[in-house]
Design a protein around this nucleic acid. Structure first.
Lengths: 221, 221
DNA sequence: ACGACAATACCTAAAAAGTGGTATTTTAAA
DNA sequence: TTTAAAATACCACTTTTTAGGTATTGTCGT
């Protein structure tokens, strides 16, 4: 069997080095390089053409777009995402952007190793928590959905501002809309989410990382 | 200079091995052992009497109590906590239980190394985000406070219910109070927190783990 | 026994949110 | 090119929240 050629893309020192040790312990794996930023990753991918990239797209110098860039440019390279706890929508987004497998950083060593083998062959592997978080729509093979919610970008924008404490009027002013429009959006959002008050909206916003729980409190320091 | 004798206590494979590499790279550090659980940690501490324990008290097989146990039994051993993002109250709690220093897992290597040196000497070291989250009350040396907030238990209870989406009336019914009382509490809380709407209350509740961001959404599944 | 604070309760009035509609325009997809 | 969905806007009405107060009781520590 041919060795699996791997790049690690993660700006966090600890998890990066944890992965290094894991790869060193298995002779089927070859670590080509470590990328600390998106530009590192682009350059190294061009140079090495890895079989597999293990990436934390949430860490400081990476983003969702990097996933898409890699998938488009190097279709033979498979992506294994490994992040801290994420919202369902983020995970679904990553999968839709072409990530083959998804783990969390608190996974066991064995799970990570298994994920590497499978992902390098192009097979999906989700750790337990991820699998339960994302429902796979059996009808369309490659479509991952997130609990049937489909909140539009505009709606997301409005949720974010509401969660940051703006009133409908303030949101309207900020986005150059009528308050009626904001009210309508708010109604539609609440219907989609199945909630009937601001608390529900704010909790959703936190879960989807639209706002940080520290929004107000760090501001007051 | 004598070498610093260290135990790593963390059930997460990746961060544990990341720390292993970091310690190996510095000849002043000696890694005595790795503890995957509280009982591991107790046994290894008894056997090795380390200068320093690097611990993620939030990881699967550890808890706040372990911090207290170690501090009480081995006063010469210093504790360096390193966790994922935490609420201020959790951090304050850890510090009050006797943790000398506190980092986050996304810290840079240099910060971790500096923290190890200082903590082993008994000096405090907080990474940037932690330091800004917790203000040290200079008047009483060993007392860490949380932004001078002192929210009473009753107030916490009411915040929690509001964040769960209950109206003042519903909270009042649940706690057998007049709506006036709930309204008053709500006002007092908002004054203490320096916010002026429900969104701020809910974000605070999330930050202090009074409510899960999944409260509504898991309920609807 | 005193003071401080927490918990309770009430009042008024303005502002905002929540409910249940309808309706036009723009955009993306089939 | 038809169609569906998203984004926009308006109306009327009710409920809830927010902001400004005051005031009584109980409890805890000094």
């Amino acid at each position: 069997m041919q060795k699996i050629k791997i790049i690690i893309a993660d700006s966090h020192f600890l998890s990066r080095k944890g992965l290094v040790i894991l790869l060193e312990e298995n002779t089927d794996f070859v670590l080509l390089s470590e990328a600390l930023s998106a530009s590192d990753l682009i350059n190294q991918s061009k140079f090495y053409h890895p079989d597999l990239i293990i990436i934390d797209y949430t860490s400081a110098n990476f983003s969702f777009e990097n996933l898409h860039q890699i998938v488009k440019k190097y279709p033979k390279t498979h992506l294994l995402a490994i992040t801290d706890v994420q919202s369902n929508i983020s995970i679904a987004k990553a999968l839709n952007l072409g990530v083959t497998s998804h783990l969390l950083k608190d996974c066991e060593q064995e799970e990570i190793v298994e994920a590497i083998y499978k992902t390098a062959k192009g097979e999906n592997f989700m750790c337990g928590k991820i699998a339960s978080a994302v429902l796979i729509d059996k009808t369309s093979v490659n479509e991952y959905t997130c609990e049937g919610l489909n909140i539009s970008d505009r709606e997301m924008e409005i949720i974010k501002l509401i969660a940051e404490g703006l009133s409908n009027k303030e949101v309207a002013d900020k986005l150059f809309l009528s308050t009626h429009t904001v009210t309508t959006h708010r109604k539609n959002i609440m219907n989609k989410l199945g909630v009937n008050n601001t608390a529900g909206l704010v909790l959703f916003a936190v879960r989807e990382n639209l706002v940080s729980p520290n929004h107000f409190l760090f501001a007051s320091n």
